[in-house]
């Protein structure tokens, strides 16, 4: 059996990593390549770099950063943020990104998933979904949670899989940055409906939360930022703890 993956997420602005609580109040936590290398040495299974300056300036800075990351890091990494065309995807692939994550642009134009997947393969496409509970239904949001759409989460995730996404990265906007735990029932329900791997994101406040989403939540991987960036627990300590609880991880 494949091991459950632990994926630190690094938000990048102007080549530096930052992490905000609910995306407000950014706090600089270091150099993107060095931080990534540190996580890799601790046993991180993959890394995700999100360019939060992508919609404004700084896109070129990010591209050259991705090139440096690809040279310096020997584990897989995903890049995301502001990817809205096959050209954006190609530019990041060319400098060495292993996968790209697409979000708002795919909601706006779902064929983007087909286009990138058919040209570069499903393994290159992570469909990121930011979901919010509204009147008892999980709906999709875009633009970092600021815009609510009428699209229903489960239907969109299934469509994404059919169109060729290789993985789903699901964030509950109710929980993101709050460190109050993942909505495990949501992840378990989605996992039953899809055959592609699901990465759980948003809300990890403790090692217990991560253990729960990987077991009861049936997620294939857990992505977290704050608990690693603020030094609550190292990736190594977390994985040892998961191992002790009988969850298969790479030690």
């Amino acid at each position: 059996m494949v091991a459950k993956r632990i994926i630190p997420c690094l938000d990048v602005k102007e080549g530096r990593t930052v992490k905000g609580v609910n995306f407000v109040g950014l706090q600089d936590v270091g150099d993107a390549v060095e931080l990534g290398r540190m996580y890799a040495a601790q046993g991180a299974d993959e890394l995700v770099y999100l360019d939060i300056s992508a919609t404004h300036e700084g896109r070129n800075t990010f591209t050259s950063l991705v090139e440096r990351i690809a040279r310096g890091i020997n584990i897989p990494f995903t890049v995301g943020g502001g990817i809205s065309s096959i050209d954006d995807a190609a530019r990041l692939l060319d400098v060495g990104a292993d996968k790209i994550s697409i979000n708002s642009a795919a909601v706006r134009r779902p064929q983007l998933i087909d286009e990138i997947a058919s040209k570069y393969g499903s393994q290159f496409v992570v469909l990121a979904i930011d979901a919010k509970m509204v009147d008892g239904r999980w709906l999709i949001t875009t633009h970092g949670g600021r815009r609510l759409t009428p699209r229903e989460l489960f239907e969109w995730a299934r469509e994404g899989q059919e169109r060729g996404a290789g993985e789903i990265l699901l964030t509950s906007m109710e929980h993101d940055g709050t460190r109050s735990g993942y909505p495990c029932d949501l992840f378990a329900r989605l996992s039953q409906q899809l055959s592609i791997p699901i990465i759980a994101s948003g809300g990890a406040g403790s090692a217990d939360d991560i253990a729960e989403v990987l077991s009861a939540g049936r997620a294939d991987a857990a992505l977290a930022a704050s608990i690693f960036h603020y030094g609550d627990i190292t990736v190594k300590e977390l994985k040892q703890m998961l191992h002790d609880r009988g969850i298969k991880v790479r030690l």
Binding site: M1, V2, A3, E167, S195, R250
Partner: peptide, 17 residues
């Protein structure tokens, strides 16, 4: 062949022994 009950996903992505 995916097998949701046993957690077998396709694509097979990640670290395996």
């Amino acid at each position: 062949t995916p097998d949701r009950g046993r957690g077998v996903k396709v694509p097979h992505i990640g670290w395996n022994s």
